[in-house]
Every structure is written in structure tokens, then in C-alpha cells.
Design a protein around this nucleic acid. Structure first.
Lengths: 228, 228
DNA sequence: GTCTATACGATGATAGAC
DNA sequence: GTCTATCATCGTATAGAC
């Protein structure tokens, strides 16, 4: 249910208290980190009462869980959608590694590009992996485990001869590259003396796909050599 | 100056207040994260008064800065030492990419293996990259910028034809893989259904070197193709 | 069902006595 | 150098207004 102003020209829906809290929390968590952001900052920015957080969500932990799940669920859906299309097109034939990686990465940067300005969510998503605390594992189980369950076999199809465990290593390394880019892009600015252009999402994805596929293929080659 | 018990058989040096605080802080920061760890936890574990933290260090920010720099400085020295040896052995000839990456990674896992039990420091180091806050940039400037200044050209020598900016991208991706492994090893356990063995530091470094070198070489190849 | 006012214990930080 | 006392701010809980 979204309220609307019925009078005058104004017909824009007014975000409910709950959504205003989620929006403000997402922005602040992404910018300053989870622990460094106080509930009072959030409620002040969202223009709601402090106790409203404890009414709609029970705790700060549950709040960031809600913040993340709101965007992670559509992200998971889009990733699986792209992978479905890929597998349908491939039939019984092989999958192209680059295509699988693209299905994993593109939805993240679609969100980054959408909505005019940059969404703060991808940075928050990148940071979340290395954050301590119980809610991280809950996010994993609810929104990442499903993606992993589909993409691990898909990567296996694209990388014949690699064991499931070895693919898990490679996927872990790959996710690390992505997460670090999302969370710590500032460091790339320093590394490149400000020369790296991070604004073009498509170019970033292309570079990542090249790096990850190269790394994964090298791991597959390395196993073959070890077997010789 | 380290105090010693002068009487009886006991000649073990007793860690000073300052060091006891640093040790406790390192352990707790690594385990629970920076913001989630209270100064009262630290002083209680170190068996010192709360105000001692503010006497020896000024603030919580300065404390973690001291915690990190204490280990980052030797780490930086060791990395440059290995790179020095590599460049001396190579003379005017080419550098082997795998060797350069190894010089970057091995010191991190040396620390992880040293001292009997696992040091909590590498995990803290991995987490630090994606932590928001001013002290991250200070760490970068004081202990990482120097490493980058030497390893970026070295990677360039090992990857002829790649531009400095492109190498910065590749190094960023590589550091991300390492940081994510150090900070979020739990996720690999989930991805691999507990099959991935993370205890053997040398095997981990080997796998990382294969992945990173494969990724970097693929980026170099990709540039050549684009130039055609 | 929604939201608000208010209070409680714990935290980071500081000032000043010893 | 070390400690006690103190302060504003934090996350959380509850009682009650609409």
C-alpha cells in the first residue's frame, strides 16, 4: 500500500515509513559501513521516529538483513534468468565460460547503472562479504547459496576436467575480485594514479570477465599438468 | 624496554602495557571486526585499565592504525626484499610473472603459518580493505603505496605490452582475490561443501598464483587483440 | 496496526587526581 | 604513567497515544 496525495497536481506516491527507513539505511550503510552508522542517523535522514525501526524491524541486524535481501532477491532472480537462457541455448552442448561469468556479473552492474545516479547498493554488497557478524551467513544462505548451486555446475560444464572443489576455489577467487572492486574502488584510483575509468559498467564487466576466465582456465590447465 | 622478573626461575619478559593492548586488540579486531570490538573488551583481555588505551594511543582509530602498522611494516619489508632478490637475479632480462606474484603473496602466508597457531593478522588485513573510515587510506599510504610503487613496474616487466593503467586493474583484481580469501574464508567452506583445504598455506599460494597469473596474462592478450 | 516519548545499560572519549 | 569520575551517544525495550 502506498499513500498518494489526492489533492492538487501531486500524484507522486509517498514512500511509507518502512521504505523510507530502508532507503536511508541502504545509503548510509553503503557509505559509512554497518557499525559506523547509527540508527539515529538513519531515522533522522528518513524523517521517522527512532522507535519506528524497532517496530518495523526488530533490531539493527534485522534491518541490514532486510536492506540487503530487498535487492539481493531480484539480483538472484536476474542471474538465474540469464543462466537459464544460456543453458537453453546451449542444449546438450558446451557452455562458454565467458557467458557464464557474464550472467553472474552483468546483473550487479545493471543495478549500478539503473536509476540515473549510482546506486549505493553494489558497494554495500561488496563490503558485506568481509563483514563479521551473524547476518552475513544468513545472507549467504538466503540469497547466495542458490546462485552458487546453479553456477558451480555451470562453471563445471564450461571448464571440463576441473573438480567441483577446484571450481569452488576459482569461484571464490573470482567473487573476491568482484567484491573488492565494488567495495574498495578507491584503492584502484590510487593504484592507477586516477587513470582507471570505473564509470563505464560494461567496460568493467568486460575486464573482469577476461581476468576471471583467464584465471579459471589457467587453474584447469594446471590440474591437467599435475595429472600428467 | 621490557621488564623481566628478576627473582626466582622466571626470566620470561613480561609484555608491557602497550604491547598487551596491541596483542589483545589485534586478536579481537580480527575475530569480531573493528567497530564490533569495544575498548572495554580489549582492556579487560589485556588486563589494563580502560584509560590506558587513551594514554598510549589517542583514540580507537589510532589504536587499530598502530595494530596494523606493527605487522604491515615487516610485511612490506619482506615483500620488497623478495622482489629485490628477484630483480637482482633477473638482471636486465625479463621477470617471471609467477615469481613476482609469489613475492607479493608468500610473506602474507609466512605470517599465517608462523608462531605455531594461526595468526589473526591476515584475516584482519583482508578485512581492512573493504572497511570504511579514514584510517584505511592512511594504512594504504603508509604501507601499501610503497609496495604498489615497486610491484606495479615489476608486473609491467613481467607482462610486456600492458599499459600501466591496465596493470593497475589487474593488480586490483588480484589483491581482491587475496583479500577475499583472507577475510571470508568461511564462504569457501560453504562453496566447496567443506572440501577445500585452506590449512596448507603453500598450496593456497600456488593456487592463487595460477589464478592471478592466468587472469593477468589473459588481460595482456586481450589488449593485443584489441590493438589488432 | 502505526507510531511516539522516554528510559536503560553500555560505549568511546576526556579531564584531572594521584 | 596510571586510575577514577564523568559525559554525550549508542542500540534496545516498553508503555501508551492515535
Amino acid at each position: 500500500m502506498s499513500r498518494t496525495f489526492e489533492f492538487g497536481d501531486e500524484t507522486q506516491p509517498v514512500a511509507e515509513t518502512k521504505d523510507r527507513i530502508l532507503d536511508a539505511a541502504e545509503r548510509l550503510f553503503a557509505g559509512q559501513g554497518y557499525a559506523a552508522t547509527s540508527l539515529r542517523q538513519i531515522t533522522s535522514e528518513a524523517q521517522v521516529n527512532l522507535a519506528a525501526v524497532n517496530y518495523h524491524f526488530q533490531s539493527k541486524d534485522s534491518l541490514i538483513l532486510a536492506v540487503l535481501m530487498r535487492k539481493m532477491k531480484p539480483l538472484e532472480r536476474r542471474r538465474l534468468e540469464l543462466l537459464d537462457a544460456l543453458e537453453e541455448a546451449a542444449g546438450d552442448g558446451p557452455l562458454v565460460l565467458e557467458d557464464v561469468l557474464r550472467a553472474l556479473l552483468v546483473p550487479v552492474f545493471e543495478r549500478k547503472a539503473a536509476g540515473g545516479g549510482l546506486s549505493p547498493f553494489p558497494q554495500l554488497m561488496g563490503r558485506m562479504y568481509s563483514e563479521p557478524g551473524d547476518w552475513v551467513l544468513q545472507i549467504f544462505k538466503r540469497a547466495i547459496a542458490g546462485v552458487a548451486a546453479r553456477f558451480l555446475p555451470a562453471l563445471g560444464r564450461a571448464l571440463p576436467g576441473m573438480s567441483r572443489t577446484e571450481i569452488a576455489w576459482g569461484m571464490h577467487f573470482s567473487i573476491g575480485s568482484m567484491a573488492h572492486f565494488l567495495a574498495a574502488g578507491v584503492l584502484l584510483t590510487h593504484l592507477s594514479d586516477g587513470e582507471a575509468d570505473m564509470s563505464d559498467g560494461e567496460a568493467v564487466v568486460n575486464r573482469m570477465v577476461v581476468f576471471m576466465s583467464g584465471g579459471l582456465r589457467a587453474m584447469a590447465e594446471s590440474r591437467k599438468e599435475a595429472a600428467r
